[in-house]
Design a protein around this nucleic acid. Sequence first.
DNA 1: TTGTAGGCGTTATCAT
DNA 2: ATGATAACGCCTACAA
Lengths: 323, 323
Amino acid sequence: MVSIKDIAKRAGVSISTVSYALNGSPKVTDETGARILAIAEELNYVPNAAARNLKKQETRIIGVFLTDFSGGFYGQLVQGMKDVLHKKGYDLVVCSGMQSHRMLPERMVDGAIVLDWTFDSGKMLQYADRGHKLVVLDRELVHPNVNLVQLDNKAGATLAAEYLIEQGHHHIYVVTGPDNSFDSLQRLQAVRQTVKRYGGVTLTEIPGDFNKGAGEAAARQIIGGYNGPCAVFCLNDEMALGFYNTVKSTEYRIGEHIHLIGFDNIEVMEYTTPRLATIDYSKKKWGALAAEQLLKLLSGESVENERIYVTLVKGESVGKVAT
Amino acid sequence: MVSIKDIAKRAGVSISTVSYALNGSPKVTDETGARILAIAEELNYVPNAAARNLKKQETRIIGVFLTDFSGGFYGQLVQGMKDVLHKKGYDLVVCSGMQSHRMLPERMVDGAIVLDWTFDSGKMLQYADRGHKLVVLDRELVHPNVNLVQLDNKAGATLAAEYLIEQGHHHIYVVTGPDNSFDSLQRLQAVRQTVKRYGGVTLTEIPGDFNKGAGEAAARQIIGGYNGPCAVFCLNDEMALGFYNTVKSTEYRIGEHIHLIGFDNIEVMEYTTPRLATIDYSKKKWGALAAEQLLKLLSGESVENERIYVTLVKGESVGKVAT
DNA sequence: TTGTAGGCGTTATCAT
DNA sequence: ATGATAACGCCTACAA
């Protein structure tokens, strides 16, 4: 592997001169500079990241930690981050799986954006304590080195629940996410509160895990005990989709026997028949904002937590019920 | 930042003893080893990746290079890779954008899996020449350090074209991908060949770019000049989806006036009405195989190029035409 | 069993 | 304007 040493030898100068030249320092003559650059080019010199990182104590890389890559969800989110980070000379890598969590404390990345419920909160706080900067999208965490950019889950779930209730539904099922998911918990609590506020509405909670399978299971359960029109709020679209699939394979019809709403407005929702109601928000903006917040943290600015607002997307999957 | 030096000082031993202990070398007493480990734990020691990488000349990280993260396509692909790589003690990071291409020559990753038409083939060969190992999924490249795991595009496109022709269609449009996309080119050539082989079929090529917008534009163009039933082969599902959307907003019906088939069988396809015909293959297997090939390359084994086989998925989007 | 020391490739501070 | 040199944190012969 060719290093600055090789270039120095070839150019008949010292390694420091080479380093200066390569970094465009004005301390070196235009002439020698050009000569060195030419030699570097000729030798196909590429700086070694490990050495540079070790010396400079920074990588100019941001790690984005996701639970997995499935769903048409992350594309826009990451694009939003990339746009912002590239503009500031940062690169971005997407990591997934608990194995990769160590990249932050090992300083392979300068900071982290986390949307990954497998990332332990305790660990995150520990890292923050050691000076690492994080932006967290999927839970509440209080630490000067941690910034929160959260969805307005409460508003979204309330919108969804109210929508169902106002269409005349008085029996509502809610299919939840994993127990340790902050998003799920927030949404669930908003639903409970809304139901209580209205009165005369019964709420049945079905535990889920944000994956398709949970939606399918919930559908089987509800169909099994079907006794009249009911409404179902799946706390994310993935589960709503699984629910939809299962109902589709029966004689029951969505929007007629079973009314369904999800959360996230992932791309697929647009293609179902009937169109599934859901809660929408800008994934790209979410990513962009998260990246901006992280950059501020890295530059030592103090930052306030931020919130991403949501809107209701109506769909034929939710119909009126005569009361 | 706490380093082995700090641990050594605290433990009253030299840094090499600490290093040995941390790496579980049998050269150190169980007693001192335990004591050192305890102190490391207590001080929250985390090894510095840059230093380790610099010394060991490897990172045990594989870079996966994608053009972007959109589409429900990459989830399974990357999952397949991750499963294989983790089992061998490698981590995986997903990179996107030309900025990130430098990670390979800078040795931030030990090897690369590439499915990114913005990654220049010349550059890739150059890197291979310098000893870097790559597995390439989206083009043909001949180099001992490069392995190819390709889709059987020719078979897929032939299946699609034959399907249309055998349903009685004699006017076929094909919407292509970007000019520099190898997948697009291979598929297009197979279509041309199939059409020629059958005879009596006219083929119209509409340039696209593998994005939704191109599908929409093609749909507008075809509808604008509509004069009787025709068949359309979008060379990927993303464009087929755009096409579908646009037709949906008109009085024309897919599967009746316009017959449509795509390529990839992305998740969304299952939810359209009518179900869009497409070409399917296992994304997970593709990723897993690519990862295996890369590991072999890294361990110095010589490897043959591989191929991923495809199947036809029929759908109501393609109907029979009376001839 | 433990310590000493050299080196991985850069950057950056001092001299010259 | 250029060169010598000391870090950065870790690993690993080799010495003791």
